[in-house]
Simulated scan of single mutants.
Amino acid sequence: MIHSSLRFLTRTINDYLSMKNGLDENKIFLTHVSDESGVAIPDKSLGLSLVNIEEEKIFKEQNTAFINANGSVEYRNPELKLNLYVLISANYQNKDIDDPSDDYYEGLKQLSYVISLFQSKNVFTNDNTPAMASEDPNIKKLILELYSYSFEQMYNFWSVLGTKYLPSVLYKVRLLKIQEEELISDALPIEEIDLLSKTKEL
Protein backbone atom coordinates (compact mmCIF):
# COMPACT_ATOMS: atom_id res chain seq x y z
CA MET A 1 0.00 0.00 0.00
CA ILE A 2 2.89 2.38 0.61
CA HIS A 3 4.12 1.91 -2.95
CA SER A 4 0.67 2.33 -4.50
CA SER A 5 -0.08 5.42 -2.37
CA LEU A 6 3.11 7.14 -3.52
CA ARG A 7 2.53 6.11 -7.12
CA PHE A 8 -0.99 7.56 -6.92
CA LEU A 9 0.38 10.88 -5.58
CA THR A 10 3.04 10.95 -8.30
CA ARG A 11 0.45 10.42 -11.03
CA THR A 12 -1.87 13.01 -9.49
CA ILE A 13 0.90 15.61 -9.47
CA ASN A 14 1.92 14.74 -13.04
CA ASP A 15 -1.66 15.17 -14.25
CA TYR A 16 -1.86 18.57 -12.57
CA LEU A 17 1.52 19.73 -13.90
CA SER A 18 0.58 18.62 -17.42
CA MET A 19 -2.53 20.78 -17.18
CA LYS A 20 -0.64 23.80 -15.79
CA ASN A 21 2.22 23.55 -18.28
CA GLY A 22 0.15 22.52 -21.28
CA LEU A 23 2.55 19.66 -21.93
CA ASP A 24 1.89 15.93 -21.97
CA GLU A 25 5.07 14.80 -20.25
CA ASN A 26 6.11 13.59 -16.82
CA LYS A 27 7.54 16.33 -14.61
CA ILE A 28 7.80 14.36 -11.36
CA PHE A 29 9.23 10.91 -10.67
CA LEU A 30 9.01 8.52 -7.73
CA THR A 31 12.69 8.19 -6.91
CA HIS A 32 15.46 8.37 -4.31
CA VAL A 33 16.80 11.85 -3.60
CA SER A 34 20.42 10.74 -4.00
CA ASP A 35 22.56 7.77 -4.97
CA GLU A 36 26.28 6.98 -5.29
CA SER A 37 26.72 9.46 -8.12
CA GLY A 38 24.91 12.36 -6.44
CA VAL A 39 21.37 13.57 -7.06
CA ALA A 40 19.18 10.66 -8.25
CA ILE A 41 16.33 12.86 -9.50
CA PRO A 42 16.46 13.34 -13.29
CA ASP A 43 17.56 16.80 -14.41
CA LYS A 44 14.80 19.32 -15.15
CA SER A 45 12.25 17.42 -13.08
CA LEU A 46 10.80 16.95 -9.61
CA GLY A 47 11.38 13.95 -7.39
CA LEU A 48 8.91 12.44 -4.92
CA SER A 49 10.71 10.49 -2.21
CA LEU A 50 9.66 8.67 0.95
CA VAL A 51 11.91 9.86 3.78
CA ASN A 52 10.18 8.48 6.90
CA ILE A 53 7.36 6.24 8.13
CA GLU A 54 5.74 6.59 11.52
CA GLU A 55 2.88 4.87 13.29
CA GLU A 56 -0.15 7.03 14.03
CA LYS A 57 -0.80 6.26 17.72
CA ILE A 58 -3.35 8.95 18.57
CA PHE A 59 -6.06 7.27 16.49
CA LYS A 60 -4.80 3.73 17.09
CA GLU A 61 -7.56 1.13 16.85
CA GLN A 62 -7.91 -0.99 20.01
CA ASN A 63 -10.73 -3.30 18.98
CA THR A 64 -9.63 -6.84 18.05
CA ALA A 65 -13.03 -8.55 17.73
CA PHE A 66 -15.18 -8.25 14.62
CA ILE A 67 -18.46 -9.94 13.68
CA ASN A 68 -18.40 -11.24 10.11
CA ALA A 69 -21.30 -11.75 7.69
CA ASN A 70 -21.94 -15.25 9.07
CA GLY A 71 -22.40 -13.96 12.61
CA SER A 72 -19.14 -15.41 13.91
CA VAL A 73 -16.68 -13.36 15.93
CA GLU A 74 -13.26 -12.99 14.29
CA TYR A 75 -10.18 -11.86 16.18
CA ARG A 76 -7.50 -9.93 14.33
CA ASN A 77 -4.68 -7.67 15.36
CA PRO A 78 -5.83 -4.01 15.27
CA GLU A 79 -5.26 -2.25 11.98
CA LEU A 80 -2.08 -0.25 11.63
CA LYS A 81 -2.30 3.42 10.75
CA LEU A 82 0.77 5.00 9.18
CA ASN A 83 1.96 8.50 8.45
CA LEU A 84 4.31 8.86 5.49
CA TYR A 85 6.76 11.76 5.21
CA VAL A 86 7.11 12.59 1.52
CA LEU A 87 9.73 14.98 0.14
CA ILE A 88 9.15 16.72 -3.18
CA SER A 89 12.38 18.21 -4.56
CA ALA A 90 13.13 20.29 -7.64
CA ASN A 91 16.27 19.28 -9.52
CA TYR A 92 16.61 22.12 -12.03
CA GLN A 93 20.34 22.78 -12.24
CA ASN A 94 21.37 22.21 -15.84
CA LYS A 95 25.15 22.44 -15.84
CA ASP A 96 25.39 22.43 -19.63
CA ILE A 97 24.57 26.13 -19.86
CA ASP A 98 26.49 29.10 -18.46
CA ASP A 99 23.51 30.72 -16.77
CA PRO A 100 21.50 28.27 -14.63
CA SER A 101 19.12 30.96 -13.36
CA ASP A 102 16.39 30.05 -15.87
CA ASP A 103 16.46 26.46 -14.65
CA TYR A 104 16.29 27.57 -11.02
CA TYR A 105 13.31 29.78 -11.77
CA GLU A 106 11.57 26.94 -13.61
CA GLY A 107 12.15 24.59 -10.69
CA LEU A 108 10.59 27.01 -8.24
CA LYS A 109 7.61 27.43 -10.57
CA GLN A 110 6.97 23.68 -10.77
CA LEU A 111 7.35 23.35 -7.00
CA SER A 112 4.85 26.18 -6.55
CA TYR A 113 2.38 24.30 -8.73
CA VAL A 114 2.66 21.27 -6.44
CA ILE A 115 1.99 23.42 -3.37
CA SER A 116 -1.02 24.94 -5.12
CA LEU A 117 -2.38 21.49 -5.93
CA PHE A 118 -2.34 20.31 -2.33
CA GLN A 119 -3.58 23.66 -1.06
CA SER A 120 -6.67 23.32 -3.23
CA LYS A 121 -7.15 19.62 -2.43
CA ASN A 122 -5.41 18.01 0.52
CA VAL A 123 -7.89 15.20 1.28
CA PHE A 124 -8.20 12.33 -1.19
CA THR A 125 -10.95 9.72 -0.89
CA ASN A 126 -12.54 7.19 -3.21
CA ASP A 127 -15.52 9.52 -3.55
CA ASN A 128 -13.69 12.69 -4.60
CA THR A 129 -10.90 10.88 -6.49
CA PRO A 130 -12.06 7.67 -8.21
CA ALA A 131 -8.55 7.13 -9.62
CA MET A 132 -7.32 6.33 -6.12
CA ALA A 133 -9.55 3.25 -5.90
CA SER A 134 -8.35 2.04 -9.30
CA GLU A 135 -4.77 2.41 -8.11
CA ASP A 136 -5.38 0.34 -4.97
CA PRO A 137 -8.86 -0.43 -3.56
CA ASN A 138 -7.37 -0.79 -0.07
CA ILE A 139 -6.50 2.92 0.06
CA LYS A 140 -9.54 4.66 1.54
CA LYS A 141 -8.28 8.11 2.51
CA LEU A 142 -5.09 10.17 2.29
CA ILE A 143 -4.63 13.53 4.03
CA LEU A 144 -1.69 15.74 3.08
CA GLU A 145 -0.30 18.29 5.52
CA LEU A 146 2.57 20.67 4.80
CA TYR A 147 5.33 19.88 7.29
CA SER A 148 7.69 22.67 8.37
CA TYR A 149 11.04 22.25 10.07
CA SER A 150 13.77 24.57 11.38
CA PHE A 151 17.01 25.50 9.61
CA GLU A 152 18.94 23.22 11.97
CA GLN A 153 16.59 20.34 11.25
CA MET A 154 16.86 21.09 7.54
CA TYR A 155 20.67 20.95 7.70
CA ASN A 156 20.62 17.63 9.55
CA PHE A 157 17.95 16.29 7.24
CA TRP A 158 19.87 16.97 4.04
CA SER A 159 23.10 15.71 5.62
CA VAL A 160 21.40 12.39 6.24
CA LEU A 161 20.14 12.33 2.64
CA GLY A 162 23.75 12.68 1.55
CA THR A 163 23.40 15.43 -1.03
CA LYS A 164 23.31 19.21 -1.26
CA TYR A 165 20.08 21.04 -0.61
CA LEU A 166 17.50 21.28 -3.38
CA PRO A 167 14.42 23.53 -3.33
CA SER A 168 11.85 21.24 -1.77
CA VAL A 169 8.73 20.83 0.28
CA LEU A 170 7.94 18.13 2.85
CA TYR A 171 4.45 16.68 3.29
CA LYS A 172 3.03 14.46 5.99
CA VAL A 173 0.65 11.98 4.38
CA ARG A 174 -1.68 10.84 7.13
CA LEU A 175 -3.67 7.74 7.98
CA LEU A 176 -2.66 5.08 5.54
CA LYS A 177 -4.40 2.00 7.00
CA ILE A 178 -2.93 -1.47 6.78
CA GLN A 179 -5.01 -4.48 7.84
CA GLU A 180 -3.90 -8.00 7.04
CA GLU A 181 -6.88 -10.36 6.88
CA GLU A 182 -5.16 -13.15 8.81
CA LEU A 183 -7.25 -14.38 11.75
CA ILE A 184 -5.90 -14.94 15.24
CA SER A 185 -8.98 -17.01 16.07
CA ASP A 186 -12.73 -17.10 15.56
CA ALA A 187 -15.75 -18.20 17.61
CA LEU A 188 -19.53 -17.95 17.75
CA PRO A 189 -20.76 -14.82 19.55
CA ILE A 190 -22.24 -15.03 23.07
CA GLU A 191 -25.90 -14.23 22.59
CA GLU A 192 -27.26 -14.80 26.11
CA ILE A 193 -26.16 -15.68 29.63
CA ASP A 194 -28.26 -18.26 31.52
CA LEU A 195 -28.28 -16.82 35.04
CA LEU A 196 -31.29 -18.92 36.08
CA SER A 197 -29.46 -22.24 35.77
CA LYS A 198 -26.56 -20.86 37.75
CA THR A 199 -28.97 -19.87 40.53
CA LYS A 200 -30.45 -23.39 40.67
CA GLU A 201 -27.00 -24.93 41.02
CA LEU A 202 -26.32 -22.78 44.06
Rank of each mutant, 00 (worst) to 15 (best):
Ser49Thr: 12
Glu180Asn: 13
Gly22Ile: 12
Lys44Thr: 09
Leu46Lys: 04
Leu144His: 04
Glu180Thr: 14
Ser18Asp: 05
Ser148His: 14
Lys57Ile: 07
Ser101Cys: 07
Asp35Glu: 07
Leu9Tyr: 08
Tyr16Asn: 05
Arg11Asn: 08
Thr10Glu: 03
Ile67Gly: 07
Leu48Ser: 10
Gln179Asn: 08
Val114Asp: 10
Lys172Asp: 13
Leu82Lys: 04
Leu80Tyr: 02
Leu82Ala: 08
Leu84Trp: 07
Asp136Pro: 07
Lys177Pro: 03
Ile88Glu: 00
Lys95Cys: 14
Ser150Asn: 12
Phe124Met: 14
Leu170Ile: 03
Ile143Glu: 15
Val33His: 00
Leu146Ser: 10
Tyr147Asn: 07
Phe157Gly: 05
His32Tyr: 05
Leu6Cys: 01
Val173Pro: 00
Asn122Cys: 08
Ser134Gly: 14
Lys177Phe: 06
Thr10His: 09
Tyr75Gln: 15
Lys121Tyr: 06
Thr125Ile: 11
Met1Pro: 10
Asn52Gln: 11
Ser159Cys: 08
Leu84Thr: 04
Asp127His: 15
Met19Thr: 15
Lys141Asp: 02
Gly38Leu: 05
Phe66Trp: 02
Ser18Arg: 05
Tyr85Trp: 13
Phe29Asn: 02
Gly71Phe: 15
Tyr16Phe: 10
Gln110Val: 15
Leu176Arg: 10
Lys109Met: 03
Asn91Tyr: 01
Glu181Phe: 11
Leu84Ala: 01
Lys44Leu: 13
Asn77Ser: 15
Arg174Trp: 00
Gln110Cys: 12
Asp24Ala: 10
Asn156Phe: 06
Gly162Lys: 06
Val160Ala: 15
Asn122Phe: 15
Glu192Tyr: 11
Leu111Lys: 00
Asp96Cys: 13
Glu36Gly: 09
Ile28Thr: 04
Glu135His: 11
Ser34Leu: 09
Arg174Gly: 02
Pro42Phe: 07
Ile97Lys: 05
Pro130Arg: 02
Pro130Asp: 01
Lys109Arg: 10
Glu106Trp: 13
Leu202Asp: 03
Ile115Leu: 02
Lys44Phe: 09
Gln119Val: 15
Met19Val: 11
Val169Tyr: 09
Arg11Tyr: 07
Thr163Arg: 04
Phe124Val: 09
Phe8Ile: 01
Ile2Gly: 06
Lys81Phe: 00
Asp98Glu: 13
Asn14Phe: 03
Asp186Thr: 11
Asn128Tyr: 01
